[in-house]
């Protein structure tokens, strides 16, 4: 069993926020996301009908900010464990509508690093949390991503 104390990584990164980019939300990006995932709700795909909705215009589907999270460059935590890495899981907490013309500032922090033993042996999970804040200062969404590291053998 690997314990927390035995995992070698840069612990000074834990909980420290990093500004990792500003993302422009365009109508084209919202429509590309919505149409490719088969959305039919007019608030996501029909600019004119969306004007009559409670949102007063086009908004992005609830998991939209996930695509920006995938583009973020995170600091290397210097983990000395394993030689394989996988995207193990993701969570999104939706806070406020995202609209065309929004500018989302992203801040990310290393949330936790912990060991686990599964059927494929020892693993270490690296968890990052990223918040997206719009130009009005409202949080649009928080995304938590888990990456698992393990050895080939």
């Amino acid at each position: 069993m690997t314990t927390d104390d035995e995992i070698q990584y840069n612990r000074s990164l834990l909980g420290v926020e990093h500004e990792v980019g500003v993302f422009e939300v365009t109508k084209e990006k919202i429509l590309g996301f919505a149409i490719s995932t088969g959305e039919t709700d007019p608030v996501f795909v029909d600019e004119e009908k969306a004007k009559e909705s409670k949102y007063g215009g086009l908004i992005a589907p609830p998991t939209f900010c996930n695509i920006f999270a995938g583009d973020i460059k995170r600091p290397d935590i210097g983990l000395e464990f394993g030689d394989l890495g996988f995207h193990a899981g993701q969570a999104i907490e939706y806070k406020n509508p995202v609209r065309p013309g929004d500018t989302l500032s992203a801040k990310t922090k290393l949330k936790e690093v912990y060991p686990k033993t599964g059927r494929s042996g020892k693993m270490v999970f690296e968890v990052w949390e990223t918040s997206f804040t719009n130009q009005r200062g409202d949080t649009a969404a928080t995304v938590r991503e888990s990456f698992v590291h393990r050895s080939k053998t």
Binding site: P62, F86, A88, G89, Q90, A91, E93
Partner: peptide
Amino acid sequence: APGVSLNTLDVVF
């Protein structure tokens, strides 16, 4: 549930 607000979605791949 059309019109529902999806507050959180947490998945394992």
